[in-house]
Design a protein around this nucleic acid. Structure first.
Length: 329
DNA sequence: AAGAATCCCAACCGCAAGTTG
DNA sequence: GCAACTTGCGGTTGGGATTCT
């Protein structure tokens, strides 16, 4: 299994392709097929290595390539498949006709990954991140729901659902705290916060707007953490939440539904119009955080895909009133 | 208006699996 | 079975485009 020597050859052109080169490559392949990629450049009159030609063809020149923005449907498919198989871009691309693995990979890295991170989900596991900083954006977004509830004259049912969502968020936040506290207790020399990769930390801190940064100073004190961890609460016994891979919107097509059937859903509920909504919940999961489409949640965060509008988040003390803490502890 | 920062994506790199002789 | 070679894949990067200050 030796390495390919083709790109090691000197004198071959690299970098962006010219329209002339594209033309030559297309004409040659349309006439003769690509055959051996190694031999192709010479036969086609190109001063490129075969690998470069193959990449140019498969990622750009192939006639069946679909260009333009990814649809919600495609986004759903990518999320669903990625949650099941991870960074298998070529496998994911097979489910998206006309999209290349490179295109999907780029879309993931520039959009979807950030979206998940901003919502406090681990982009690799698609589960809520248990480290403290990772949970912040998700919780902030949920806390913001309560603010909306208080500001809008919604009906009682909707308001109750929102309040329950905030309660769930609080629970999850406390879960994070307890995880942190437990690890502090188990290992005096290191805290879970200290174990967060610095890149992750920077990423999360970078996502917080200045008001949120300032509110960090009013987070629970170490003494509170101690008092919580002193309750002999086993972190593993706390409820866990798994994000539905249909995270931003419900699937809308037969294709998406078909894909859904490829992976085992952990639960389902009936949607408003009678169509079942698939929820990927773990057995010990909390109830769904909200009863409205989670896409609303995504819209409320300050993300690059949120039409550029920024939203002022509430301060942390508002999220955790004393009554709640008393009830919980 | 201009420079800085950020986003985006085409293309490259290198590894590993598959194929051939 | 082995080595040379080809192909496919995923991670990373460079630089143009766009947005922000």
């Amino acid at each position: 299994m030796g390495r390919s020597p083709c790109c090691d050859e000197n004198g071959l052109k690299k970098g962006p392709w010219t329209t002339e080169e594209d033309q030559k490559l297309m004409e040659y392949i349309q006439k003769h097929g690509h055959g051996s990629w190694r031999a192709l450049p010479k036969l086609a009159g190109l001063n490129r290595c075969g690998k470069s030609c193959r990449l140019r063809w498969t990622n750009y020149l192939r006639p069946d390539i679909k260009r333009g923005k990814f649809t919600q449907e495609e986004e759903q498919t990518i999320l669903r498949l990625h949650s099941a198989i991870g960074n298998k871009w070529s496998a994911i691309a097979k489910h998206l006709p006309g999209r290349t693995d490179n295109e999907i990979k780029n879309f993931w890295n520039t959009h979807l990954k950030k979206k998940l991170i901003q919502m406090g989900f681990d982009p690799m596991t698609h589960r809520p991140r248990t480290d403290f900083f990772a949970a912040l954006p998700q919780l902030i977004a949920l806390a913001n729901l309560r603010q909306l509830v208080e500001q809008r004259p919604w009906d009682d049912h909707a308001a109750r659902m929102q309040a329950e969502a905030v309660q769930a968020a609080k629970l999850q936040y406390l879960q994070s705290l307890i995880h942190s506290a437990a690890s502090i207790g188990n290992s005096p020399s290191s805290s879970s916060i200290n174990t967060i990769p610095s890149s992750d930390l920077q990423e999360q801190i970078g996502l917080l707007s200045p008001p949120q940064m300032s509110s960090l100073s009013s987070l629970p004190s170490p003494s509170l953490l101690e008092s919580i961890s002193g309750q002999d609460i086993v972190a593993g016994q706390l409820p866990d939440i798994q994000i539905p891979s249909s995270f931003f919107e419900q699937p809308t097509s037969n294709d998406a539904n078909q894909l859904n059937s490829d992976f085992t859903p952990m639960g389902s509920v009936e949607g408003e119009n009678g169509t079942p909504k698939t929820l990927l919940l773990s057995e010990n999961s909390l109830p769904p955080l909200t009863d409205f489409p989670i896409s609303n949640l995504g819209d409320m965060c300050s993300t690059s895909s949120c039409d550029g509008s920024s939203i002022q988040f509430p301060c942390w003390p508002e999220l955790f009133d004393e009554q709640f803490l008393t009830e919980f502890v």
